[in-house]
């Protein structure tokens, strides 16, 4: 029994090591590649302690997701993901990480109990989602990859309020209108956010000197307890370092 299982396993491994190229579907292969990268890096984000590494894994994960979008035929969304998410948002995020990456904060550990509870809940949620994802029979059938109309032009037209795409009959999309109003709303929203973010993060003038600068200049502490202690001792109301070269002097 066990011998048979081992034999089957070894042959299947051999089959996987020397894949029969002729019958491989490259679409599926690249899907597996990108999916593994996206999921693996997402997992690494969760497991990593160092915040800079987390940012790096997040970049890889979102980049791989952009690859998945390209594989799904959503070229515009994929390029948008690369441009805005990976190239814009995450650069911003890494920037924030570097502005705050003082030695004590690079890795803030979480207690094992919290991790265990979160893992348990996450596992339960994952099971639920997987059951839901695999419960519908038509979704489990393999897709039909073939040449289709590029979606960027109809998408752009839809964003300015004109629907030029022809959804298949019976699809819930029949009779839907364009997206001019949401498009305008997010434009204004972006402007508001831009102003608000600049206002929130501006370099403020301070009258009092900053006692925390002394804290930042001491040797990086060793244990987690010491990190916490240092933060507690520091009086509130002062940053650990003056404004960066880019933001301009803070004092």
């Amino acid at each position: 029994m066990i011998g048979a299982a081992v034999a089957v396993a070894s042959t299947s491994c051999l089959g996987a090591v020397v894949p029969p190229l002729a019958v491989l579907d490259w679409h599926a292969v690249f899907f597996m590649l990108f999916a593994a990268a996206a999921c693996g890096c997402a997992l690494a984000v969760v497991l990593a302690d160092n915040v800079v590494r987390m940012a790096f894994y997040l970049v890889l994960s979102l980049g791989a997701t952009a690859g998945l979008f390209f594989l799904a035929g959503a070229e515009f969304v994929g390029a948008m993901q690369l441009m805005i998410y990976v190239g814009g948002t995450l650069v911003l995020l890494v920037f924030g990480v570097m502005l705050t990456a003082q030695a004590p904060f690079v890795s803030i550990k979480t207690s094992a109990g919290e991790k265990a509870v979160a893992g348990l809940l996450g596992g339960a949620l994952l099971t639920l989602l997987l059951v839901a994802a695999l419960s519908v029979e038509p979704w489990r059938r393999p897709g039909s990859v073939g040449p289709t109309e590029p979606s960027a032009t109809p998408l752009g037209m839809a964003l300015v309020g004109v629907r030029v795409d022809e959804p298949p009959a019976g699809s819930p999309a029949v009779g839907r209108s364009g997206y001019l109003l949401p498009f305008e709303i997010i434009s204004v929203h972006l402007l508001v956010v831009l102003v608000a973010a600049a206002y929130l993060a501006r370099a403020k003038r301070r009258k009092t000197p900053r006692p925390v600068e002394m804290v930042a200049s001491v040797e990086p502490p060793v244990s987690v307890a010491e990190h916490a202690a240092i933060g507690r001792e520091a009086p509130a109301g002062a940053p650990a370092r003056s404004g960066s070269v880019l933001v301009g002097g803070g004092s």
Binding site: A28, L68, A133, W139, R140, V145
Partner: peptide
Amino acid sequence: LGHPPGVSHYLVVGAIL
């Protein structure tokens, strides 16, 4: 791997993320 991926494949990836 011999067939192109379907919706479920993407849903699984989405669920994990």
